[in-house]
Amino acid sequence: MTLTKAHIVENLFAKNIFTKTESAQIIETLFEIVKQTLETGEDVLISGFGKFSVKEKNQRRGRNPQTGDPIMLSPRKVVTFKCSGVLRERINVGK
């Protein structure tokens, strides 16, 4: 099964604080804030879950994997995720 935003909205709605529409709006805004923060290059640290950070990648030579043609990859930013130790342990219980 794949968890989607719709499931998170359901879980929030089940708390009986917000209507379905409000729940959907709030979850949308929540991810929007996280995206805006990463967009400015700032890390987002959720204790117990993990850390999202933006890393700068230098320009490098690469190859088109299909044709093998050499190409120059431009400098870019990538978003990385580091799992928290707590979550990591919980994922590995009963491994």
Partner: peptide, 29 residues
């Protein structure tokens, strides 16, 4: 209320990962 929303979100995501379920948030990752 905002704390509940944030906790529900990340707890839902944690539960999925603990069960080794896939998790997809459109536009995010």
């Amino acid at each position: 209320a905002a704390e509940t929303a944030v906790n529900v979100t990340f707890q839902s995501m944690e539960q999925a990962l603990i069960k080794s379920d896939r998790l997809e948030i459109r536009g995010f990752g």
